[in-house]
Amino acid sequence: AKKKIAVPGVGEHPLQYNYSFWYSRRTPGRPASTQSYESNIRQIGSFASVEQFWRFYSHMIRPGDLTGHSDFHLFKEGIKPMWEDDANKQGGKWIIRLRKGLASRCWENLILAMLGEQFMVGEEICGAVVSVRFQEDIISIWNKTASDQATTARIRDTLRRVLNLPPNTIMEYKTHTDSINF
């Protein structure tokens, strides 16, 4: 069923873009094929204003409290959090691996920067993901054009600033075509 497009309520503070939250969890023992990925991902809902964002976010479990192999995705409304989406096909992502205990704070700082348009890269941002794993957690931010080095450099520099990470934190850029081939 087609989801209703979100609109800001009266007196609320509109965002530059509407966004949708998604949640996915890997079923143990299943291969990670495209089909099973798509069937394991659920849209939580969409929002158009700062206040609507908080209404969702305040009721969501913090990434650091998730167990098992799970992900939260926050993407612009209309973009699926998948490589195959037209907005992502030519794109890539910055990946930051986090030791356990940092995911909740880093995820919040990352999505607040995205919602508040702190990256200053025009239409380039597609969405962000936090992936909870056994040994470590991973946050990533996806953009449309992997070949645009000025954009990817600006995203990296903004990430460093808004996440306030230790200077030795490793940041890795991966194009989605690399991920597909891998």
């Binding site: 309520g9 007196g11 609320e12 503070h13 509109p14 965002l15 530059q16 700062v50 206040e51 964002f53 908080w54 209404r55 305040s58 700082n109 607040l112 920067a113 919602l115 508040g116 348009e117 702190q118 808004v162």
Partner: peptide
């Protein structure tokens, strides 16, 4: 056009505004 830019503090301050409850 004009972009709608919010800093972290502005967003956090809206968290407990009556309209968000």
């Amino acid at each position: 056009g004009t972009r709608i830019i919010y800093d972290r503090k502005f967003l956090l301050d809206r968290r407990n505004s009556p309209i968000a409850q």
